[in-house]
């Protein structure tokens, strides 16, 4: 297990009183798997990731994580005044891990993922998809055991989104990273993940967990996954979970 959540609960104290966001969440992440976290808007997915990343303390339960955690947000949060290379080594710089091996690793990733020519450019000169890749490499550079992606493609247009999710999927699988990906897009969840965890409306509980097993003639990537006959079946299951059991909010 890379990560284990045991009865994790979270309450926020707000002006209107206590806001219960997470209610005894239990799940775990296995080595090398991609897990999608799906749930209605405002159900507490980002809060869950913040707790896993250690940016928030849960009010109940415990999080057991093995090793470092890398967090990638919806926006790429690249620093405009730094070059691409300088952006990518930001985490290493902060953690004082700018060793020759790590620098070599970063350079290899920049080359492998088509960003080497842009290493001396500034983020404003790159497309949205490229920026997202830079953000991912920055997150991977510090060598985390677990990756958290919070709606990483939400700011991209549909076409780019498909291509970038293809890219990011390949990178994650190649680097063999266990990953939690939060998304609103059911097709994206099915096409990217090995398992899907569905959260209920706030306060969020785990409603269902699906293992995604797709029959495919070719190698599985997000694009080929969409061709599998099982894809529709999963989609309908998820749709039912999110809409029939939670009719008032939907997604």
């Amino acid at each position: 297990m890379v990560l284990e959540l045991k009865d994790v609960s979270m309450k926020f104290c707000t002006k209107e009183g206590n806001l219960e966001v997470l209610d005894k969440i239990n799940f775990s992440i296995r080595e090398g798997e991609i897990v999608a976290l799906v749930g209605p808007s405002g159900s507490g997915k980002t809060t869950a990731l913040n707790i896993i990343a250690g940016l928030l303390k849960p009010t109940g339960g415990e999080v057991k994580a093995r090793g470092d955690i890398g967090y990638m947000f919806q926006r790429d949060n690249l620093l405009e005044w730094r070059t691409i290379y300088k952006n990518v080594i930001l985490g290493l710089e902060i953690q004082k891990k700018l060793t020759p091996e790590n620098i070599e690793k970063v350079k290899r990733m920049l080359k492998t993922y088509g960003l080497w020519e842009f290493r001396n450019c500034h983020p404003s000169e790159l497309s949205g998809g490229m920026r997202q890749r830079v953000a991912l490499i920055r997150t991977l550079a510090t060598g985390p055991e677990l990756l958290l992606l919070d709606e990483p493609f939400a700011s991209l247009d549909y076409q780019t989104k498909l291509l970038v999710s293809e890219d990011i999927y390949k990178i994650i699988k190649k680097e063999k990273k266990s990953t939690i990906i939060v998304t609103h897009d059911l097709s994206e969840a099915i096409s990217m993940s090995d398992r899907i965890i569905i959260l209920t409306d706030r306060p969020a509980r785990v409603m269902n967990i699906y293992e995604i097993e797709l029959t495919l003639d070719e190698e599985r990537t997000p694009l080929t996954a969409r061709k599998s006959p099982d894809f529709r079946i999963y989609f309908e299951k998820l749709w039912r979970d999110l809409n029939e059991k939670m009719p008032k909010q939907g997604i």
């Binding site: 967090y71 947000f73 919806q74 620093l79 930001l90 902060i94």
Partner: peptide
């Protein structure tokens, strides 16, 4: 942007680093 600070914190940046680098 608060998310940029979270990004720095996710790398375990301390206050001084958040100030000087962000």
């Amino acid at each position: 942007e608060p998310e940029k600070i979270l990004m720095m914190k996710s790398f375990r940046a301390n206050k001084f680093q958040i100030y000087t680098k962000l």
